[in-house]
Computed example of a mutant assay.
Amino acid sequence: MTDETAAREPASADGTAHPLYGYSTATVADALDRVGRDGCLLGIGPLFDGARIFGRAYTVSYTTAGHPAGTVGDYLDDMRPGDVAVLDNGGRTDCTVWGDILTAMADDRGIAGTVIDGVCRDVRRALDVGYPLFTRGRYMRTGKDRVEVRDVQCPVSVGGVRIAARQLVIADADGAVTVPPDVEDDVAEICHTIHERESRIVDDVLAGRSLAEARAAHGYHLLQRNQA
């Protein structure tokens, strides 16, 4: 995997026009704190440094396979370029719901990336092409005959957070967050304020001002505090 591949821009049909595009997950997490909402996906991390995602969730919910077992999913046929595959496998780490075939197809179709409450396998291709995967880890055992798709485009839970179909998902080196649609505008406005003030703090301390003075001057400890 080259540095150029690892740092590729997040694929998103509307990403460059969205007011939250370009903000880090850390900044978004602080803004979510300020509006009193939880959107941080606990335990979900990138397959490689440089992976980034910005897009709308296409949700898939898994359950234990029946007898006979159902499909592990052909949902990629219905996804659009810029969508994010958000897979709820209940946090299972004993079998995977994503592998080589899905990576190849998703990368070819312009899918923005994949977020899994569970594990992935066949990671070599994802590393080689720089396809963004955010999961609980990697494990080689197939999910076939162990899990099956329960539903698609339904509410799911990933990292302890509820995600609805078409909900905004943002991911980077620090992990993944999701922003509920009813607070997108508020979160974007707060992110702008946080980014500006933290940039001023950095400028001040690099110019020789003490950290305590710079933080106090720009209200650092109040940036994420919920005002309710």
Rank of each mutant, 00 (worst) to 15 (best):
residue 1 M to T: 10
residue 1 M to W: 08
residue 5 T to Q: 13
residue 8 R to Q: 14
residue 9 E to N: 12
residue 10 P to W: 06
residue 11 A to R: 14
residue 12 S to Q: 05
residue 13 A to Y: 05
residue 14 D to E: 15
residue 17 A to M: 11
residue 18 H to F: 06
residue 19 P to F: 06
residue 26 A to F: 09
residue 33 D to K: 09
residue 36 G to H: 06
residue 39 G to L: 04
residue 45 G to S: 15
residue 48 F to D: 15
residue 49 D to F: 03
residue 52 R to K: 13
residue 52 R to D: 07
residue 61 S to Y: 00
residue 61 S to A: 07
residue 65 A to S: 09
residue 67 H to T: 12
residue 70 G to S: 02
residue 70 G to R: 04
residue 75 Y to L: 04
residue 79 M to H: 14
residue 88 D to L: 01
residue 90 G to K: 01
residue 90 G to S: 00
residue 92 R to Y: 01
residue 106 A to V: 07
residue 109 R to D: 15
residue 110 G to T: 12
residue 113 G to R: 13
residue 116 I to N: 14
residue 121 R to C: 06
residue 121 R to I: 00
residue 123 V to K: 06
residue 125 R to S: 03
residue 132 P to M: 07
residue 132 P to H: 08
residue 134 F to P: 15
residue 135 T to A: 15
residue 138 R to Y: 03
residue 139 Y to C: 05
residue 140 M to Y: 04
residue 144 K to Q: 04
residue 148 E to Q: 11
residue 150 R to L: 03
residue 151 D to I: 00
residue 154 C to I: 04
residue 157 S to G: 04
residue 159 G to W: 08
residue 160 G to T: 06
residue 161 V to G: 09
residue 166 R to W: 02
residue 172 D to T: 06
residue 175 G to H: 04
residue 179 V to M: 04
residue 181 P to E: 07
residue 184 E to N: 04
residue 189 E to V: 13
residue 196 E to D: 15
residue 198 E to Y: 07
residue 201 I to G: 08
residue 204 D to V: 00
residue 227 Q to F: 05
